[in-house]
């Protein structure tokens, strides 16, 4: 079994170290939640822990991918990658709604802003979080290359969202901590949280919407099908020789199944030669797609 390349190892290390840093933050959050008996802090710790679970799941799949442990997925690992994206997207969506709920609950309870000491402590913790996100994003961006796996791209995207969100939170919470007027403090605290919620929900929704059609075996778009038909024509397959065309997508890899009844193939050798040529032609045309030409094995009545 081949081991991971140096480049792949650096990607794994970038994801691992940022996840471990996040783990440290979660541990501190849990510690303070228990120490202060704060249910709000405890729920925040649970939310971050859930996100962390998804991060570790992504890392686990990335490691398996780099070590070729997913070879048994004979139809490709595109769907596994999309499932990772779905998990990250869903976690972002969930977190976004959670934060939005907290903002609304705080506004409805007409609570005054946290105490100055509480806001100052929050600003310090937020700064640590911002630093972790910045370092994590820098490490991951440095290891990124063209043609990276979808899992790594999704992790990088999620980290960028977290960095942007934590930067905005830092600005808002610093203003809130420095503000002498409690109304201004509450306002900036709320604006920061609402912005974070908005970004998380938008990106999360986009990620879920992007990967769902693939996971559902949705057929390829009409223009791609037309491209396939044109490629078949250029490979010498006439329209009436194509009995059935089934398509779906697995990550970035289109999967095409053609049922052909090629004319003028008296012997199996002729048939095999011709369909192999068609498969190769389509693969070249569709950027290495998974193409299967299957024999028409139905009864005449079924056809």
């Amino acid at each position: 079994m081949p081991g991971p390349t140096r480049d792949q190892k650096s990607k794994e290390a970038a994801v691992l170290y940022t996840s471990l840093a996040d783990l440290a933050v979660v541990t501190i959050l849990f510690f303070f939640a228990v120490f202060t008996s704060s249910l709000t802090l405890l729920s925040e710790a649970i939310r971050v822990a859930l996100m962390l679970l998804v991060e570790f799941y992504g890392l686990f799949v990335l490691r398996a991918l780099h070590r070729d442990r997913l070879r048994r997925f004979r139809f490709g690992i595109g769907k596994v990658e999309q499932m990772c994206n779905l998990a990250i997207g869903a976690a972002l969506l969930f977190s976004g709604f959670w934060v939005a709920h907290s903002v609304v609950a705080a506004l409805l309870s007409v609570q005054a802003a946290s105490t100055p000491l509480g806001l100052a402590a929050a600003a310090v913790i937020s700064a640590v979080n911002l630093l972790i996100n910045l370092l994590g994003w820098l490490a991951m961006a440095a290891a990124a290359r063209d043609g990276d796996s979808a899992i790594y791209r999704a992790q990088l995207r999620a980290r960028a969202v977290k960095l942007a969100a934590s930067a905005i939170v830092q600005i808002a919470i610093t203003i809130a901590a420095l503000a002498k007027d409690p109304v201004v403090a509450t306002l900036f605290d709320g604006i920061g949280a609402a912005f974070v919620a908005g970004v998380m929900v938008t990106i999360g929704f986009k990620m879920v919407a992007e990967c769902l059609p693939d996971l559902l075996d949705h057929p390829l778009p009409g223009e791609t099908k037309k491209e396939i038909e044109a490629a078949l024509l250029s490979a010498g397959i006439a329209g009436e020789e194509l009995l059935r065309l089934r398509t779906r997508c697995s990550g970035s890899l289109p999967q095409v199944e053609l049922t052909l009844a090629p004319a003028g193939c008296a012997s199996v050798t002729d048939y095999c030669r011709r369909v192999t040529a068609v498969e190769n032609h389509l693969k070249d045309h569709l950027g290495g797609a998974d193409v299967s030409v299957v024999v028409d094995a139905r009864k005449p009545a079924e056809t």
């Binding site: 199996v268 030669r273 369909v275 030409v293 299957v294 024999v295």
Partner: peptide, 14 residues
């Protein structure tokens, strides 16, 4: 859902 490909050995595509 069965799909059957016919191939001569050694003449596989790709």
């Amino acid at each position: 859902d069965v799909a059957i490909r016919l191939r001569a050995p050694g003449a596989d595509s790709g």
